[in-house]
Design a protein around this nucleic acid. Structure first.
Length: 592
RNA sequence: GCCCCAGUAGCUCAGGGGAUAGAGCACCGGCCUCCGGAGCCGGGAGCGCUGGUUCGAUUCCAGUCUGGGGCACCA
């Protein structure tokens, strides 16, 4: 049990023994570290309810606290705060237990859930760009966080591959290459042979076609109508379109897989909207027959407004008036699949915050339609938009969107340049230098993103991402690498980590206090679904380590038990940093 | 018009109803006979505005201003 939890239990009992509610015993990390390690503010609120003086009440509570092994001193301060200073040897013992625990003292959740994390969400036929960065790395981090906590997680890329854009691309291609067999409605693969196995387009072609056809549809209703028809035909199984779709899909996935792999983002399943095509028609029919859905202007809709709504909630569209399906339909069917086939208890959507209304509609419709029973949770974990320094949508200097692959090259090159300039790692093999540059560049990129709160709008600043000083990913890597270096040298000298003993210098004590907070930080990050809490803490751990490192010279320490303890402490620090960075999707080089 | 999100230091951002609101960058000043200086130590400067709830509000609520976003046949 964590130190903070032990203290909370002790104070809960002390409040109970004083005739008050156990919940008043909640202990928090002290806000005034120069005064105490932890504090309990429960006396202030409880005193109000009991109509007594808070300081007197705090004193009464203290009289019921008897934990000399754990607590070194207690003090009532200010209006009635209880300041708690823990015993040095208890602190050392807790730190030592953490060091010998494979999970670093973090308990597995009592009731593991099957959690589907829906993130990434690229549209088929589009190269990944900077806008996909957040979904990918926030989603990856949240997935890892839930998995570490003990949940059964499934990361699903949920590709946008079954909607209007596909119909648009089909007619755009038709206009460019009308003679392709895919457009011949009379073509019968049973008699005429299979469709060509070679794709008529590359992802490059599709990416170029995409904005062109989008604009054409916006400008010309007749073109838009053709796209709708093509979408309908595709969804209803027109063979040529399906064959074409397969090509679009394959060239897209091949390219996108490379980008996601380069980012260190791995999906468990590559499902998409198309995966649930077979569920669409039955689902809509069932919703109609049960009366949950109704026809309106030829479309099928589900009313999701409620009497107590503060805002007007438009109905959710299950089908267009031509009978074709929308992403609301595929999202609902996907949810159905996730519950029915994948056994989800919780579905987390890591998707742009601008889609919050859509998810509100989908979640409500899902409850009404019985797709979701009350025991299954669904949450939209929205994130902020990607803007440039001036708060406008991010564009490259040429005015286009920055490709994800180009972005990775940019940060990797910056890291490589830094290595060269500073004459760092000059004697390493060229291959290793490249690998270090890759790891450092990605760390800068990811930490720069993940240290922001998920929901805040995102200012995309290349200079900031290529910075390696201060509160950055590379600083964290550097801290970890220094520890590895120390441990390597210690091993060379035959020195081993030993029992962690009571701290003797403030920097050492501070580091221990920081490390033992890990369980609470993990729990809080899970509760808030917020990787930035991990990022903040990781930086604090690294900073506290740097201070300790500056002040305590480990390898030249003369007292053997102290030296062994310090080696244990820095080894634990490395484990904690490694774990945290892994949860953020950041790798640590062996040396750099 | 309605709704959502955000307003904290010059800039980019943290912040869990509690005491004296924290980092990083930038700027200024220190630390290299010592385990890796991508480091450490020190310095200045801030909760949009007005009310409310509370013993106590940057935090919760209402209003207001500013910025961003959304509002059935796009995703």
């Amino acid at each position: 049990m964590s130190l903070q939890q032990q203290l909370t239990d002790i104070f809960g009992q002390a409040f109970a023994a004083s005739g008050l509610d156990t919940s008043a015993g909640t202990v928090a990390v002290s806000q005034r570290p120069e005064l105490a390690d932890y504090q309990c503010n429960g006396a202030l609120g409880a005193a109000k309810a009991a109509q007594v003086n808070p300081r007197d009440l705090a004193a009464t509570v203290l009289s019921h606290v008897d934990a000399p092994d754990l607590i070194a001193s207690l003090e009532v301060a200010g209006p009635g705060f209880i300041n708690i200073t823990v015993n040095d040897s208890a602190l050392a013992q807790t730190t030592g237990e953490m060091a010998s625990s494979p999970r670093l003292g973090v308990e597995l959740v009592a009731d593991p859930l099957t959690v589907v994390v829906d993130y990434g969400g690229p549209n088929m036929s589009k190269a990944l760009h900077v806008g996909h960065l957040r979904a990918a790395i926030i989603g990856e981090s949240i997935k890892r966080l839930f998995a570490f906590s003990g949940h059964n997680t499934i990361g699903d890329i949920h590709m946008g591959d079954w909607g209007m854009p596909i119909g648009q691309l089909i007619i755009e291609l038709q206009d460019r290459q009308p003679d392709l067999v895919y457009f011949d409605a009379e073509y019968d693969s049973a008699t005429d042979g299979p469709y060509p196995s070679e794709s008529p387009v590359t992802l490059e072609d599709l990416s170029e076609m995409y904005p062109v056809i989008t604009q054409r549809c916006a400008d010309d209703p007749a073109v838009a109508e053709r796209a709708r028809v093509a979408t309908f035909d595709l969804q209803n199984g027109r063979a040529g379109y399906l064959a074409l779709w397969q090509h679009f899909h394959d060239v897209s996935v091949a390219e996108q897989k490379k980008d996601f792999e380069a980012l260190g983002v791995n999906f468990d399943v590559w499902y998409g909207e198309s995966t649930v095509n077979d569920r669409l028609e039955p689902m809509v029919r069932s919703a109609l027959s049960s009366g949950v859905a109704r026809e309106s202007d030829g479309a099928v809709i589900v009313d999701v407004a409620q009497d107590d709504d503060k805002k007007e909630l438009p109905p959710l569209l299950l089908t267009r008036s031509d009978g074709s399906y929308l992403y609301s339909t595929t999202d609902l069917a996907t949810l159905d699949m996730r519950v029915e086939d994948m056994g989800s208890d919780l579905v987390l959507y890591v998707v742009d915050a601008r889609q919050s209304l859509h998810f509100e509609q989908v979640f409500r419709a899902a409850r009404k339609m019985g797709v979701l029973n009350p025991s299954v949770g669904v949450e939209h974990l929205g994130f902020g938009t990607v803007n440039d320094k001036h708060g406008k949508p991010f564009k490259t200097r040429e005015g286009g969107v920055l490709r994800l692959g180009d972005l990775i090259s940019l940060v990797t090159d910056a890291a490589r340049e830094r290595l060269d300039d500073a004459h760092i790692a000059e004697d390493y093999p060229e291959e290793e230098r490249d690998e270090i540059a890759r790891q450092v560049g990605l760390a800068a990129l990811k930490f720069g993103d993940l240290s922001n709160h998920r929901t805040s709008n995102y200012i995309f600043d290349l200079e900031r991402f290529a910075a390696f000083e201060g509160k950055t990913g590379p600083y964290l890597q550097y801290s970890a690498v220094r520890i590895k270096s120390i441990l390597r040298k210690a091993a060379d000298q035959g020195l081993a980590a030993g029992q962690i003993i009571a701290p003797t210098v403030p920097q050492e004590r501070r580091l221990m206090l920081r490390l033992v907070r890990l369980p609470e930080v993990i729990a809080r990050s899970v509760d808030l679904r917020a990787p930035n809490a991990l990022a903040e803490y990781a930086f604090d751990v690294a900073t506290d380590f740097s201070r300790f490192y500056e002040h305590c010279h480990i390898l030249s320490e003369e007292d053997p038990s102290r030296q062994a303890s310090w080696l244990g402490l820095v080894s634990l620090t490395l484990s904690v940093l490694t774990q945290l960075l892994d949860l953020l999707g950041i790798e640590i080089p062996e040396r750099m």
